[in-house]
Structure formats: C-alpha cells, structure tokens
Design a binder for these strands. Sequence first.
DNA 1: TATTGTTATACTCTATAACTATA
DNA 2: TATAGTTATAGAGTATAACAATA
Lengths: 169, 169
Amino acid sequence: MSARLDDHSRSARHPKREALADAPGEAVDLGLLDEFIGFHLRRAQEASFQAYARRVGGSDLHPGRFALLVLISRNTGITPTALSRVAGRDKSSITPALRDLEARGLVGRSPAPGDRRSVVLHLTDAGEARLAQLTVHALAHDAELDRIIGVSAKPAFLRQLRRISEAFA
Amino acid sequence: MSARLDDHSRSARHPKREALADAPGEAVDLGLLDEFIGFHLRRAQEASFQAYARRVGGSDLHPGRFALLVLISRNTGITPTALSRVAGRDKSSITPALRDLEARGLVGRSPAPGDRRSVVLHLTDAGEARLAQLTVHALAHDAELDRIIGVSAKPAFLRQLRRISEAFA
DNA sequence: TATTGTTATACTCTATAACTATA
DNA sequence: TATAGTTATAGAGTATAACAATA
C-alpha cells in the first residue's frame, strides 16, 4: 500500500515497537522504495514467478526452462550460444540448463552442418508434448495477469516493459 | 556489451523488437513469449537490476541490500522476522543478509524490550551515511526509468505493478 | 587469432529442517 | 505448544577463466 513518507505517528498507533509488523499485513513504511519503479518491478516479477511455480507445481519446470523450450521449438536448429544471447546470459550459463533438458529427454542435439565446433538443438517429441502441456499453464497464468492489469491496458504495459529491457540491453 | 548508463550519446529510441540479442540478420522468433507479461516482466526486472548494479559498481551493495537499509531506516526497531515478511522471504533467508550488513558496520541490533527471544534493528551512523550515498544512485536510476516509461505514465505503471504483486501476495 | 561449447569453480540468493532460548 | 532467531545444508542460477577443437 502507499506509505506516508513523513508520517511518524505510527508509534502512537503502535506503542510497542516490536509489534510493528508482528501480524501479517501490518503496516511497514516502505520509504523511498514505494515510488521506485525498480522495486515494484522486482516485487511484481517475483509474485508472478511464484504464482506460475504454484500453478505448474513446484517440482516441475520453471519459467526459464519453459522459455528455453519455446525458443528451441520456434527456432529449431538454434545453437547454444545463440540461445544464451537471446536469454541475455553467458554461454557457460546455458550448458547446465540444456543438460537438464536433455536428461529429461526433452531436447536433442545434432552436429551443426558446416561448423564442426557447433551443435544445433531441437525438441524431441516428448519435448514438444511437454511444451504443449506447459503452454496450457502459461496461457492460463498470463490470462490471469491480463485480468489483473486489464486487457485494454495490456499493449501499453507490454510496450513499457519492452522499453525498459531494450533501453538497458 | 559495455554500455554506460551515463552515456547519453546512446539513443533512447529502439524502433525494432525481437532483435534483442542475436547477430544481425538472424532474428529469433520469441513465439508465445513475446505476448507474455511474465516474460517481459522478468526481462525488464533483470535489465533494471543490472543497470543499477553497473551504476553503483558491481562490488557494492545490491538492490536487495539497499532495500533492507531503507526499511530499517524507516522502521527503526523492526525485527528480523518482520523484515523477512516485508521482503516475502523465509526468516532464515534474512540472517545472512543482516550478518553481511552488520559486518559492514551499517546495521546494529539491540535486545528487544519485552521479549528476550527477539532483537530490534537500527542503522548505525555509517549505515545512514551509506544509505544517503546509495539513495543518490537509486534516485538517479529511477529517474532514468522515469524517462524510459515517461513521467506522465509512471503513476499508472506503478499502479499496475502493485496490482500484480498484491494479487499474488 | 577468434569462436563454440564445455568444464571447473565460486558466489549469491533462497528454502527446509532442526536447534536454542525463550514465551 | 508456539515463536524468534540461528545454523546446517541443499538447490537453483549465474559468472569468470581456462581449455580443446575448429574456424
């Protein structure tokens, strides 16, 4: 909620200081944080992430893995290095994720034609099936996000998020 | 990638989408991801985080630590458990962060009056001074975010982010 | 010389469970 | 019995540096 930045009267309402946030939902002064885009960006992202994780089940594939499946499916033959660039990660960070997806039998690799240093990636049939399952959950989750921000406001909201990630790319 | 935040020679306009990270002429198809709020939320948060980290220097205090300093400063006498609830983390997750801030001499603790199990937190003078320094960086970073999304659009944007985090709280 | 992918390694952040000392 | 805080431990996720094979 919105914090009153200069309100020091809270000690009047809460004579015992340790009771400041004893009860869940007790008011805590967020100070400057309450007007920072970065702070609310982080909270929204975290909340959305955890809601998705609850939806698919904690033990299942996280959003990052789902994103890899989508990207490999839509870009069959992409290389690990190209994937890491899309994800904005170092190439060494993508190796464990791909190994995990391979171990689950969802992703396969083949020698890259024309460059024997490289490999090209594809989804297995099981990978495509799993992607289809996860897509149902992802669509439901996104539909919930749509309801929260309002369908008519979505395009502008997405545009602003894209502007942020592109401005700092 | 060595973009400096202070470098205003860099255009803020980015007309093309999807050319996020790949070699020229090799556009990557984002598929469903491109319309997912959660996906763009994550990218924006990550980009903002890294831009802030570059601004304050990679070795310095990260946004999470800055947030703790703000919260302790604005809520002197808050307990670790209350802090963990504000941050949405388990109480065991807050212990290492507080130990770090104590080791840096920025945060102090005292016995909680009336409950000998508990402790209350406060910023040291050095902590307040450091918070003031970091606030300058945080304000500059947030001003850049303001420019990116537009000052007039900021209130609605913040409202939407708050709605997301509160809807999944 | 540069690039691809991997390995080794380390650091951060987080969570669960068990423990202590209180309450 | 329940709670505050800590500890031990484990699991993701990421990064840097170095390496072998290839370009």
